[in-house]
Every structure is written in C-alpha cells, then in structure tokens.
Amino acid sequence: MFDLQGYGFLLVKGAKLTIVVGIGALIIALLLGLVGSLFKLSKIKTLAVLAETYTTVMRGVPELVSILLVYYGAPTLIQDIAAFFGKNIYVNLDPMFAGILTLGFIYGAFTTEVYRGAFLAVPRGQMEAARACGMSAVLSFRRILLPQMWRFAIPGLSNVWMVLIKATALISVIQLPELLMNAGIAARSTHKPFSCYFAASLIYLLITILSIGFQQWAEKRASRGIRRE
C-alpha cells in the first residue's frame, strides 16, 4: 500500500519548501509580534488601538480567507488605487512571497498576544531596579526585559509554530508546490490518493515530533538561570 511508485522524492521536495515557508513566516511573525506587543503595552492610545484592531481582525478571520484576500485581492486593490491616480500598472504576486507574507502577518497577531503576556510576566521590580541603576528606557528594555521575557514566551511561541507549520498546507490553494500540493500531484499520477496523502500526513507528523523535541530543549535552555525548589 505504501508503494509511492517513485513519487517519494516529490514529497521530500515539497516538505523542504513547506519548512522554508514555515520558517520564513515564523521570522516575520516573531518580528511583527514584537512590534505589536510593544504597541499594545504602549501609553500612546493610537498605537494601542491599532495593535488591538490588528489582533482582533486577524484572529477572527479564517486563514484561508486571509490568504485569498492577500494573494488575489492585494494586486487588484493596488491596481485600482493606481488607476484612480491615472496610472496603469500590473501587479502579480509570487505565490511563495504571498504565502510567507500572509502567514507571517496572520500569526504575528498570535505572537503579539504571547509576547504581551511574557512582558507582563517579568516582575516589575526588575525594570524599576534597572531604571534606578541609571539605565535608559531602551537600554533597560534590551538588557533586562527582553532576555528574561523569552522564558515565558517559549511555550506560547512553540504553540504558534506548530499551528503555523500546519497552516502552510493552505498555501497549496495558491499553487505553491509545497508538501500538500506535491502529494496531490503524486496522488493523481499514481491513482493512489490515500497512500500519497497519508504519507504526506506522516511527514507533517514527523515535523511536529521534531518541533516538540526542539521546544523541550529550548525551554530547558531558557530557564538555566532559574532556581528550582
């Protein structure tokens, strides 16, 4: 039943692209989340409202709709705006670029919430002590808050990663040859859809298992300096 008739390499090739898209989107999400959480905790009302709107909308709309909106909607929107100003341009998004960008943008909303909780979890006294030692706001953020926040953020960020890597499967609808789309090609060529899709699911499962292992290692590493009773 597991004879993939030589299409196994196609799945492996797709898996590589899946991981590339996943890591690319994760990097964008991590950076966006940092900005978003600082906006949310900011005393400037406009920034806080902006970040709140971003997380509320992104977490309320299905990923697939967001992907379709960016991939099909963004180019036409830009063209319409350009036409409004009397310019005729043609925009065509690369599926890989659109996929990484959209997933990063969606999961940035989730990392925003994770970071926000992690920042609040660092005891206030730490920052007060740093400020009392004469560190500026930026320096105390970089030296005190940022390094200590990771320990609280890692479990949440790992969760976001596990959801994100599975969400890369949705990119197949915009014709990026990642794992699921290649599995589909293999399924149609071999006339063994179950074997091909099941094999693909096992590759996703393997990625999940490896991620869990990495998470445990990272958590251990981030709490090296913590005393245990």
Binding site: K166, A187, Y204
Partner: peptide, 23 residues
C-alpha cells in the same frame, strides 16, 4: 489524538475525501 493534532486539517480532509477513492 496525536495524529489528528499533529497533521494539518486540510490533509485530513483530503485523506478522507480523495483517499477514500482508493478503497
């Protein structure tokens, strides 16, 4: 539980919808 939480939902849908054709 581990299988259904560790694989993408879209793959599960494809396994059931397209995969059932094999049987």
């Amino acid at each position: 539980i581990f299988y259904f939480r560790g694989t993408p939902l879209l793959v599960q849908i494809f396994i059931i919808y397209y995969g059932s054709g094999q049987f």
